[in-house]
Amino acid sequence: MDDNILGLLKLRIKRGINLAIRDARASDPYVVVKMGEQKLKTRVIKNNCNPEWNEELTLSIKDVKTPIHLTVYDKDTFSVDDKMGEADIDLKPYFECVQMGLNLTQLPNGCSLKRVQPGRTNCLADESSCIWQDGKIVQEMILRLRNVERGEVVVEIQWVDIPGCKGLSGVEL
């Protein structure tokens, strides 16, 4: 195992909302997630501007400052796939919650640890909260896609500690 890995980040790509039309009447969207050298993608959903992927992608985290870049594409058969917008995921508020390291087991399910407002430094379309859920901290966010006329993607993130890895304690955000 790589000694530099701090842990894993589960990224659930839930769905797209009102995505741009890139074919005759709809699009065939899929999502590509990049972080450093890592590149993962979802399956293609045919003829749908409101696709339900509900796919889990897992990234290994070596540096908490490395951004996660998400791009939505329209799959084309005979030409280059069309870009349907992009967004960056701001992990700092989430990692701050994970780092708190409080005795969170005493918290009730659904307890909000932190609220993150949309702003210039993130791609949030709406307020997002870091929530204590089933023994884990999860954050669901609606990302407004940039460089496109419309579209949003719903994503959920969750940290996974790996035995033998450093984890986030003591890591400067």
Rank of each mutant, 00 (worst) to 15 (best):
M1P: 04
M1D: 10
N4I: 13
I5H: 06
K10I: 09
L11D: 04
I13M: 13
I13E: 10
K14L: 14
R15N: 10
R15D: 08
G16N: 03
G16M: 05
N18T: 03
N18K: 06
R22G: 05
D23H: 04
D23T: 00
D23K: 03
A24M: 13
R25Q: 12
R25G: 09
V31L: 09
V33S: 06
V33R: 05
M35A: 10
M35K: 11
E37K: 11
L40E: 04
R43P: 02
V44Q: 05
N47T: 03
N48M: 07
P51A: 11
P51Q: 11
E52A: 15
N54Y: 03
E56S: 15
T58H: 09
T58C: 14
L59C: 12
S60Y: 08
D63V: 12
K65G: 03
T66N: 13
T66I: 14
P67Q: 14
I68G: 10
H69T: 11
H69D: 10
L70A: 09
L70S: 07
T71E: 12
V72L: 13
Y73V: 08
D74C: 15
D74M: 15
K75S: 11
D76T: 09
M84D: 00
A87I: 05
A87G: 03
A87S: 02
I89D: 00
L91V: 01
L91P: 00
L91C: 02
K92C: 00
P93I: 00
P93C: 02
F95Q: 01
E96H: 00
E96L: 08
C97N: 00
V98L: 07
V98N: 05
Q99G: 03
Q99W: 01
M100L: 13
M100G: 11
G101C: 03
G101E: 04
L102H: 04
N103R: 14
L104E: 08
Q106M: 12
Q106V: 12
Q106R: 13
L107A: 13
N109C: 01
N109P: 00
N109Q: 01
C111Q: 09
S112Y: 06
L113V: 11
R115Q: 14
R115F: 07
N122T: 02
C123H: 06
L124W: 01
L124E: 02
E127I: 14
E127S: 15
S128H: 03
W132V: 12
W132A: 12
G135F: 02
K136V: 05
V138F: 03
Q139E: 05
E140V: 04
E140H: 01
M141Y: 02
L143W: 03
R146W: 05
N147E: 08
E149M: 13
R150K: 15
G151F: 00
V153T: 04
V153Q: 02
V154E: 10
V155D: 03
V155I: 06
V155S: 02
W159D: 07
I162N: 13
I162C: 15
I162A: 15
P163H: 07
C165A: 13
K166C: 08
K166D: 05
K166N: 08
K166W: 00
G167P: 04
G167V: 08
L168V: 09
L173G: 07
